[in-house]
């Protein structure tokens, strides 16, 4: 039941490794399981792997819905 919070891709390196930004926290993730990801796209990450690619528009809709539903606050406060 892991949460699908979109993380922004800020850098793509060799070997399908990218750096993503999630709420100001940056981390390395693998892009081996998704194709066609570009810097500026959003990805949904699970244990170090990008699962799904979202374009910025889809991601902003998702993030807005999550914020409205209180997911972000609830999860941060937990």
């Amino acid at each position: 039941m892991c949460l699908a919070i979109p993380a922004r891709v800020v850098e793509i390196n060799d070997n399908d490794v990218a750096i993503v930004d999630l709420g100001g926290v940056r981390k390395d993730i693998s892009l081996a399981l998704v194709e066609g990801v570009a810097v500026g796209d959003y990805v949904i990450v699970h244990v170090g792997y990008a699962l799904t690619r979202l374009d910025p528009e889809e991601a902003s809709i998702t993030l807005a819905l999550m914020a409205e539903a209180g997911v972000m606050e609830a999860a941060v406060g937990a």
């Binding site: 039941m1 892991c2 949460l3 699908a4 949904i44 699970h46 699962l51 799904t52 998702t62 819905l65 999550m66 539903a69 209180g70 997911v71 609830a74």
Partner: peptide, 21 residues
């Protein structure tokens, strides 16, 4: 917290969106 107050359709859409795995 996520689903209270939603219609069934909204709730289903949201659940599909929020849970990644």
């Amino acid at each position: 917290r996520l689903l209270a107050g939603r219609t069934p359709e909204e709730a289903a859409h949201l659940a599909g969106l929020v849970f990644s795995l």
